[in-house]
Amino acid sequence: MIDVALASLIEDMIEKAGAEGVVEFWQRVGDNLAGRMGKEAYLGWTSFNVAVREARTAFSIEGEVTPLTDMAITDVDGDVVGYLYAMRQCCYVPTIFRTRFAVGRMSPADKAVTEEYNENVHNIAVCNFCVFHERFREEIAKNVTVSGNPLACFLLATRGWSGETKISSKNVVQVNINEDHVRALLRNYECVYALVLRGARLKGER
């Protein structure tokens, strides 16, 4: 119930702090939750990807995550420094459906926060919850080490419950993945992100 009520809380907060205030709140909540999840260490990508598949990592709190091990990210020397990860279902979609069938329609507050984020922070959100969990993933990536190196997270693409898609051109370039490959993934997945070793010299970086 509290997930459905969240939209009503956001409506209230928009009145008091504006949509930009809600964006700041959500980002701080992402920081706080990640800070309470603890650190994790893995010997290498194989053990990390197995842990992701078995839902043992902090990333798994969002729901079922699939490591796309056929889509490796390489650095300027051609070494594998990361992979793509994807969720078949956006973690907010169940709440959208619960709201649809409990209240009747989604609150306009959801759209207001989404648009604020897309215009002023990162044009990748398809719902207000994207604001929170993009930051959440970025922060937990810092607390996860693979072969002794902390990770960095780049949100690449999202698909909303009504079919609209968003692809982050800057992040796709950064991790040197072809945008068409990411677009094709959106046929099967609703959220695609990359995890790479922090500080790796990526091909897409200038």
Binding site: N32, Y92, H133
Partner: peptide, 19 residues
Amino acid sequence: RMQDSNPFVEIATHLFLED
């Protein structure tokens, strides 16, 4: 069509309330 609950969104909402 309805799921029982959405625990991850609930967790985030609790953190939201704490903040």
